[in-house]
């Protein structure tokens, strides 16, 4: 057993004793009861288990939690689906997902939400041209499997958040 401490959605968690071969997904779901992060394939194929990792340089990435030991996240700051809305106020992306009817069963939604959010934050730093937008969204979301929706509305939902505030995300 080894001690693990990290920050989840702005709150310090740990130190907790964990098995070196306990996956981050099981740590979140079995130890912490944070089941907003899903388990889909256990092999980084569907990415329904992806969370956001906020790096020290101010950038963020998503990481599937099913293929990484929990200890890899020691001292890291992560965000999960439970942490997007603040005091019940949905983020623009959450709102867009709901209003677009982006998902159906919703099991892949946490992964798409985290991936879309990281994309939005990246585009705020590194804007893209309008004509590259659909391709950029595809590159971001294509790792995520959705079996219900056919993906159309997920892509529209992300795109429409960007197009609603073009100067923030797109080059002039």
């Amino acid at each position: 057993m080894t001690m693990l401490s990290l920050t989840i959605n702005g709150r310090a968690v740990g130190p907790l004793d964990v098995r070196p071969d306990l996956s981050m997904n099981d740590f979140l779901r079995e130890r912490l009861g944070m089941t907003g992060t899903k388990f889909g394939c256990g092999a980084a194929q569907c990415l329904s288990c992806a969370v956001i990792v906020d790096l020290d340089d101010g950038t963020s990435v998503t990481k599937p939690t099913c293929v990484a030991p929990a200890l890899d996240f020691n001292k890291q700051k992560i965000r999960t689906v439970e942490g997007h809305a603040v005091n019940g106020v949905l983020t623009p992306l959450q709102l867009s997902f709901v209003e677009h009817f982006a998902f159906q069963c919703g099991y892949c939604t946490p992964g798409f939400l985290n991936e879309g959010q990281v994309l939005l934050e990246r585009l705020e730093r590194e804007k893209v041209a309008r004509e590259d937008l659909e391709r950029t969204i595809m590159e971001a979301l294509d790792g995520h499997i959705c079996r219900c929706s056919g993906y159309v509305k997920y892509h529209q939902a992300v795109r429409d958040v960007i197009l609603a505030d073009p100067s923030r995300f797109l080059t002039a």
């Binding site: 944070m34 089941t35 907003g36 992060t37 899903k38 388990f39 999960t80 689906v81 439970e82 997007h84 809305a85 949905l90 959450q94 709102l95 997902f97 709901v98 209003e99 009817f101 998902f103 919703g106 099991y107 939604t109 946490p110 939400l113």
Partner: peptide, 20 residues
Amino acid sequence: PALGRVDGVAKVTGGKLYAA
């Protein structure tokens, strides 16, 4: 939101919904 599924907010906020 006025628009959306009745389970929309629960599903984008990670509510406990599924048997899993």
